[in-house]
């Protein structure tokens, strides 16, 4: 059965978000964070990531050498804190540059299209 327009829209938006989850996560790990606090920090900045997506992602990024982690016991249960590894910092800088370039390009494309439509209406 074909997807409804709403399904298609939801899927495309999900794909768009999936592409930036890694960058968003890395951006918040310049300071050590554990899973829950990271999710809260991202949500507080308007980037809600499902826990079922975020927690496994941290492990995958760690296994790729982008994050370093350690168990800490402070006030509460033991928590695993993640932070950028040197390799992760380099990648974060590179991804940030790519992201800014892309945002500029896509903004330009969208603005052009917007202006063309306006001209066509008037």
């Amino acid at each position: 059965m074909a997807d409804t327009p709403d399904d298609v829209s939801a899927k495309l938006e999900q794909e768009l978000r999936r592409g930036i989850i890694v960058l968003a996560t890395l951006s918040q790990l310049r300071q050590p964070q554990y899973g829950y606090s990271l999710r809260q920090a991202l949500a507080a900045r308007g980037m809600s990531i499902e826990e079922g997506t975020l927690y496994p992602l941290l492990r995958r990024l760690e296994s790729q050498g982008l994050l370093a982690s350690e168990w800490r016991i402070e006030d509460g249960p033991p928590r695993r804190y993640y932070t950028l590894s040197p390799h992760g910092e380099t990648l974060f800088a590179s991804l940030t540059q790519s992201w800014r370039g892309l945002v500029g390009i896509v903004d330009g494309l969208i603005d052009d299209e917007h202006s063309n439509r306006k001209r066509a209406v008037t």
């Binding site: 829950y36 826990e51 927690y55 492990r59 249960p77």
Partner: peptide
């Protein structure tokens, strides 16, 4: 090799999520 470490962390995180 991953089981215990992930399980231990996941349980703590889920408890914290739930409390939140």
């Amino acid at each position: 090799r991953q089981r215990n470490d992930v399980g231990f962390e996941l349980r703590a995180l889920l408890m914290e999520e739930l409390s939140g």
